[in-house]
Design a protein around this nucleic acid. Structure first.
Lengths: 238, 238
DNA sequence: CAATTTACTGCACTCGATGCCAGAATGAAA
DNA sequence: TTTCATTCTGGCATCGAGTGCAGTAAATTG
C-alpha cells in the first residue's frame, strides 16, 4: 500500500515535512529581501530565527566532508552553528535531511512541468525533458550538488534514507504516467514507468557524481534515451 | 568441512554480512540435513545455537504483523524468542534485517543464472527470465513473502533499509550488463540497465504485494516486457 | 510596560546498535 | 574424569538519533 495517494482530498492535516524552518517562511536570516512585505513595515511577529535551513545545511555538509558523515554527530553540527541540539531537529526531521537541500521544492517543480506538458508529446519525451529541466544548475551550485550526491551514494545511512525521498519522486512520476496511460498510479504499468524513470535518473546522477564524466544534464538525456529505446543503444542517436 | 583455508592471509577481516547465525553454518537447529558432513558424525564443536535465523525471522514477522513494526522493539522479539536482546544482534545486523529472509542467497542465485545465460540471448531476455526464475516460490512461501514485501513497501524504516539491499541487487545486474555492453559496471549504460531493471522488479513486487493482482512471476514478466519495448504497450504494433 | 507571538533549548526518556567480557554448553584430547 | 578449546549466550555500559515537555528568550504591537 502506501505509495501512491491518488485522491485529492488531503485529509491529513499534519505539517508534512519540514520545508523551511520553525514556522514556514524564512524570516530574513538568509535571504535579505524583506521588502516584499505588505505596504507597512511589519517584520515577522515573534522572535526571529537564529539561523536558516540552508545555512545549517551548508554547515553540516562542510563537517561531513571534513570528518565524515558518521563521525559527525548532530551535536557537532548544532554547536558549530551555535544552536542547541534540540533546535537542529526543528529545522530537520532527521540528520540525513541536512544533506537533501530543498528537494521538496524540486519535486513540486517536476510535478508542474509534467502537468504543463502538451498532451500529444510522447510520455518519455516529457519525462526526459522535465527531469533535465529540473536539473539545470548554475556553476556555483554544481559543486555543492556533486558533494551532496556523492555523499548520498556512498554513506550507507544516506543511501537508506534516500529511498524515502526517491519514493516521493516516484509518486509524482507515477501519477503523471497514470494520467497518460489511463490507469491508476498504483498499477503495474504506471509503477514500472515511474520506477524505471527513477532508475534512469539515478544512473545519471551516479555516473555523474562518481566519475567527473561531463555534464549532468547530458547524462540524464542519454539515460532517458536509453530507456526509450528499450535499453538498446540506438543506431542513430542525437 | 567446506573450505577451511587456514593460511592465505585473509585480508578481508570483516565477517561480511551475517548470513546464517553466530558463526556460519547452521548447526542443526533448523535444517535437519547434516549428513553432508564427513563420514563420521561430527557435530559442531562448541555450544549449540539456541535458535536460528529463520526461526527468529518468522517470530519477528509475526509480531510485526500483530502489533506493527515500529511498535515492536528488539527486546520484544528477543524475549518472545527466549533469548537476550544482545543475542538478537548476533543473528541480525539490524532490526530491519529480520524482514529480509535469505535475500543474500537469492542474490547469488540471480548472479549464477545471469552468468550461465548463453551469450546470444538478448540482454533483457536474460534479465527477465532470471528475475522470474529467482522469484518462483511455492504456495507455502508465497504468503510469507507477500507479508514481507508488504511491510518493506509500507514501513518507512524498512523502505529506507531496502535501498541498501536493492543496491546490492543492482550491483549484480550492473556487472552482468557491463559484460554484455562492453563497459564498466559503473558506466552510465550499465547503471541505467541495472537500475531500470530494478525498477521493473520493484514495480512488479509493489503491484503484486498491494493489490492481490495475480501471479508474481507474471507481473515480473509484464514489467520487463514493458522495459524492453521502451515502456510503450506493445501488444499491437503502433 | 504588558501582551502576544514565535523561536530557542535543556531535560528526561525511548530505542537501535556496539564493544566488552564473563559464563555456559558442547566435543575432543589427555 | 579432567582439562581444554571452541562456540554461543547475554548482562552491562555506552553512544547517538529522535521526541515530548516545559520553561525561557527575543521580537512586535498596543
Amino acid at each position: 500500500m502506501g505509495h501512491v495517494e491518488a485522491d485529492a482530498d488531503e485529509t491529513k492535516t499534519g505539517d508534512q515535512t519540514k520545508t523551511d524552518g520553525p514556522t514556514r517562511r524564512t524570516p530574513s536570516a538568509d535571504t535579505p529581501d524583506q521588502d516584499v512585505a505588505d505596504t507597512e513595515s511589519s517584520g515577522p511577529r515573534g522572535r526571529p530565527a537564529s539561523t536558516s535551513r540552508h545555512e545549517l545545511s551548508r554547515l553540516a555538509l562542510d563537517l561531513f566532508a571534513r570528518q565524515g558523515y558518521d563521525e559527525t554527530t548532530v551535536d557537532d553540527i548544532a554547536s558549530a552553528a551555535g544552536i542547541g541540539r534540540r533546535t537542529f531537529f526543528r529545522y530537520f526531521d532527521a540528520k540525513p535531511d541536512a544533506v537533501w537541500g530543498e528537494f521538496d521544492d524540486e519535486l513540486v517543480r517536476l510535478a508542474d512541468r509534467l502537468a504543463e506538458a502538451p498532451e500529444d508529446e510522447p510520455m518519455l519525451d516529457v519525462l526526459r525533458r522535465a527531469v533535465m529541466a529540473t536539473n539545470r544548475f548554475g556553476a556555483g551550485e554544481l559543486d555543492e550538488l556533486r558533494q551532496r550526491m556523492s555523499l548520498i551514494g556512498s554513506v550507507p545511512d544516506l543511501v537508506a534514507h534516500s529511498a524515502v525521498r526517491y519514493e516521493a519522486w516516484c509518486d509524482v512520476v507515477a501519477t503523471f504516467a497514470a494520467g497518460r496511460l489511463g490507469c491508476a498510479p498504483g498499477d503495474l504499468e504506471a509503477q514500472t514507468v515511474a520506477r524505471a524513470a527513477l532508475g534512469a535518473a539515478m544512473a545519471a546522477f551516479s555516473s555523474w557524481a562518481s566519475t567527473g564524466g561531463g555534464d549532468l544534464v547530458d547524462q540524464v538525456d542519454r539515460a532517458f534515451r536509453l530507456l526509450a529505446t528499450g535499453l538498446v543503444e540506438s543506431p542513430s542517436p542525437r
